[in-house]
Structure formats: C-alpha cells, structure tokens
Design a protein around this nucleic acid. Structure first.
Lengths: 218, 218
DNA sequence: ATAATTTCCGAACATTAGTGCGGATATAAT
DNA sequence: ATTATATCCGCACTAATGTTCGGAAATTAT
C-alpha cells in the first residue's frame, strides 16, 4: 500500500478536526483554504487518492460526501498522574466586570466546567480558579483572546507578581505586575515595551494573583 | 414552547436516520424527497421552525449545515484525568538555533526533563515536545521570557495555525500564524496590533506547529 | 539524460443546494 | 364571517460545490 503524502495526511487531519467542530464534513473548498491548497482540483485529486488508499469513502457529486474510514484509534497508554481540577468561573472581556469566586460559588461547584491541570506545575490547587479571556483587551499583558488564565484568590501579592488589580478611581480592572512602593504602587505591563504607571496605593485593590496562563492553539 | 408539528417530527427523525446512515447531514432536497414534501421552501421553513424550537442548529448558506441538538461529539465517557508527558528539549532565545527533536533524541529520552500536561487539552501527545523561552525576542507572538512553548514536530500546518517558521533568506526563525496563499505565504504575528508580512512560499520552511503556551508565574 | 508517473495549477463548467417571493390553503382567534 | 397566523406550494434566483481539462511542475523509474 502506498504511503500517504504529507498533504494527504494534512487533509485527513483537517477533515477529522472539521467534523469534530461542525458535526458535518467539510467541502472541497473548506479543505482547500484550511490546508492552503491553491486549487480545488488538487483537493479533489488527493481525496480520490485517499479514497483509493481506503482512508475515507467519498460519495460522488455529493457535497460534503466524505466519511472517514479509520476513525479514532484507541489512545495508547497515557501515564496517569495527579491532576488538580480548577473551576472555570467565566470569561473576562474589556469592560465587563471581573468575575470573582463567591462564597456560595465555591461550595456549589456542581455543573461548573472544570479544567484539569497537573499538580506538578500548579501545586495543591487550593483557591485556584480559571477565567477565559475574550477579546484583545489584554494584549499589554501578553494575553490574547482564548487564553485561559489561572488565578488564585488572594488580596496580597509580592512585588513583581502578576495580579488582577482594580483601580478604584477608574473602576477598571487589569492584569499587571504589581510593585508596592510605600505610598505609591507601580503597575507594570508584562510587555516590557510598554510603560509602567504608578498610583496611590489606596487607589489600587488586588483582586487575585495570576498563577498561570494557558494558551491552546488546537 | 410550541409543540412540534407532525411534519417537523418526521423531518427530525429523517435527519437522524440520514446521519446514522451517511455520517453527514441531508440537504434540504434530501429531506424533501425523504419526507414526501412538495417544495424545498417548505423544508426550509420547517427547518427554521425546528431551529427556533432548539431542536437543531442550522448554519446559514451552508449545504448540509445541520446539527441535531441532542448530538454532541462522540462517546462521552467518564472524564479521565490522564496526563501526557512531554519532553523539554531545550530553550529558545533570540539568535540561537531553534532546537528540534532529532532521531536519537526521541529514542533516548532518559534523563530528559518531562513536562506533564493534561491529555484533555493536549490530545494524545504524539510528537510533542516543549521549549523554554529565554529573553523577550518573541513579544510579537505574545510570548515572554520563561514561557513554556508546546510544539508538535511537523512540516505541514493548516492556515491560521501558529508555527515555528524559518525564513530561509534571512536564516531567521519566528513564531507566526501561518497562511499559505499559493505562491506567497503570509505570516501574521499573534499580536493583532502588528503587521503581517508575506514571503515567497519557497522561502518559508515550517519547522513545528505551536500547540500551546504555558506561562507559570509562581 | 530521457521517459513515465504523480502531483499540482488555474480556470472554466455544470450540478447541487439554500433562499426569496407571490400567492394558495389551512387553522385558529375575534 | 372576518381577520390573523401558520403552513404549504411552485418557481425562479443565486450561491455553494464537485468535476473536468489542458498543461506545468515535481518526482520516480529506465
């Protein structure tokens, strides 16, 4: 049996993910653009090759007439270790109020979406929660749309740590590196190309500490 | 909530059986003939009613763009908290050569530092490796010093995915969103405030795909 | 090198398939 | 009955989508 070309494997994995996302197969043109192929005929050609090799079946003259043959291969044998489940409490977006765990929220986590993180890198996971970032409002913090921010609810952070802080006079909330310097508090964006700002310490309220950021590019 | 008409229930069950048989949803006309309806517009009308009632979702202007509400992904088993161990191969810094897994590196992982990541968000973990970022040379990619970049060794990525690409004429390597557009290839920084650049496709070599970024602020 | 084969390209082309519209028909409310 | 609402009918229109074809380019075999 002929081995699949790189492009054919790419197409195959694209189809798989497309179905995973949409619950229906892609069109020839979906594949074309998704895989950066210049012509629909090339897609059609490779689909026929894939059909020949038995990797999929194809209904002629039917839009989205694709069916993967070798569905999900059984997962090999992932090593099981301890993980910590962290509740996904909501999303942050520019302007929207900053979601915070509340007393009853903690006790009633039923139905909450949970994010599993390895204990090895997270620690005990006590008091941790996750927020999903919406929009590009946190570019300054090197955080973009879709990122998952892991936070620890605390009102005290050490200098240099990143925290969700509220500027009372603005009633705005941002993620910044925190530096208490006596009566003044300096907030420094993660992006070193951007300028820091200082406020009266009274004006700055620490909401949570940022423990980690997870960006998944599937 | 309105109760479904007989015809709507018929359509619903037809869609269900059709998907069962073909693995892709029917067209409006498939439904028309399958349910003995005289006009496509009647089908379209009832599909909209079914959408209103939440029985299914419909992608506009998309052939077979149907998804039954009660169906979601594959088998929903018990949530496993398995993790996958990913080898930490080295560090990336500005100017330094981009570390890549080599043949013997793969076979001899003894003593390699391993990073555990949840299988739930990483997948099988096949062909994955991790690199630690040194320095601020990747600010454009919203990646900063200390970040852990999870990569998959592949030379083919789909449009829109982020990848480690080498510009041959520069002999430089960066992380960019990749868009193959025929003879030209567009590389787009993750930071939407920055401009994209295009190169001759010959001049661009894909080294690895970026699967995820983990930033730990302990 | 030369020829054979595979793969790719671009541009039509032809069918498939979703949508819109005027009007008919039924069903329910007033 | 009369109005309102929901459903249906055909038909035409347009967008979506699979296919074809001549030729170029890359790969492999002789």
């Amino acid at each position: 049996m002929k081995t699949l070309s790189e492009r054919q494997q790419l197409i195959l994995s694209f189809i798989e993910e497309f179905i995973e996302e949409h619950d229906y197969p892609p069109t020839v043109r979906d594949i074309q653009h998704g895989c950066g192929i210049s012509s629909t005929s090339v897609v059609s050609y490779n689909l026929d090759r894939l059909k020949d090799s038995g990797a999929l079946s194809r209904d002629s003259e039917v839009s989205r007439g694709l069916k993967l043959a070798g569905q999900k291969g059984g997962s090999s044998g992932p090593v099981s270790i301890d993980t910590v489940a962290v509740p996904l409490l909501g999303t942050i977006a520019a302007g929207s109020p900053f979601p915070m765990p509340e007393n009853d929220t903690w006790s009633d986590l039923t139905g909450q979406e949970l994010i599993d993180l390895p204990q090895a890198i997270i620690g005990t996971g006590d008091g941790l929660y996750a927020l999903k970032v919406r929009g590009e409002s946190m570019i300054d913090a090197l955080i973009c749309d879709g990122d998952l921010v892991i936070m620890e609810q605390t009102s005290t952070v050490r200098n240099g740590q990143m925290a969700a802080v509220r500027i009372k006079s603005d009633n705005s909330t941002t993620l910044k590196h925190y530096y208490a310097e006596g009566p003044r508090t300096r907030l420094e964006p993660a992006n070193p190309l951007m300028e820091a700002m200082t406020f009266n310490s009274d004006d700055v309220e620490v909401l949570s500490r940022v423990v980690g950021v997870w960006r998944y590019l599937g």
